[in-house]
Amino acid sequence: MDEVPSPSPTLSPLQDPDYAVGLALVRRARRIRFVETVKVGIVWIILVALLTAGLLQLRFDARYLFQHADFVLRGVTTTIGVSLISILFASVLALFGALGRLSRNPIAQGISGFYISVIRGTPLLIQIYFIYLGLPQLGQQLEEIGRPDLARLFTLSEIQAGVLALSLNYGAYMTEIFRAGLQSVGHGQYEAAAALGMTRWQMLRRIVLPQAIRVIIPDIGNQFIAMQKDSALVSVMGIWEITYRANRLARKDAKFIEMLLVAAALYWILTIVSSWLQSRLEKRMAHAYER
């Protein structure tokens, strides 16, 4: 038997006579982690330096880049705006998609299954073209049969079409996230709610969803980060977001590397900032319910 009596589970670290030993171990582990982080940082700096050197060899026009960066920068709000609105709509679609998949109603199941299959089975770019170019064609036909009122519904602005396409597309992919979130809530929670006499809707709204959302929100964050980049595709409709602006100047002045670099850098920064925000959010979520 060990000579040292095992501490009772309620002994706090400060009461522990071996506190100093633990403290030294923790500090050592922290130091090692810090040194590792620094090393990784050095590798990043070297990589960026190499990249810059390579670009300078290509005789790229740094002055042009800095002079015109703010023209592209002004597209950031559009990119964020389109992504933000789309992720909201996509979340709503995904919730209904997930409820449909989990439902025992054949109609709900059929509709959500079909939606997910069609959207995931076709490219986002095609979906964008369909909504932006295909829908007005449908509208035209409606106009010919004497329903100009309906026709107007089918002719969407670039932003509307872009948001619709991104929402529909991401909604389908995010259905799985919502389904997993809903299923992560234990069976016992459903049973407890049912035993208390709650209807299915009350159960969902008051008991299941609030718990599922905690699981889902970090994943929505990931999807938002991905969408910021996928929103570049809506530039094909001439929405003045980052990619469209960069592309426009690049073509005009034949400064492709310069402008693409600006656009890429902006997306990159957006991603880094969003990821940081998301990790903070995730930490906060982990500490919920601790009152």
């Binding site: 234990g186 929670q189 407890a192 208390l196 006499g197």
Partner: peptide
């Protein structure tokens, strides 16, 4: 179900609600 109250082996309390909220939830809703 309104005639019966059930207590489960695994408690199944609602983790996202405080103790008081757990108790008042069903009567209110």
């Amino acid at each position: 179900r309104l005639k019966t109250g059930m207590v489960f082996q695994e408690f199944n309390v609602f983790p996202h609600k405080t103790v008081l909220e757990n108790v008042i939830e069903a009567p209110i809703i």
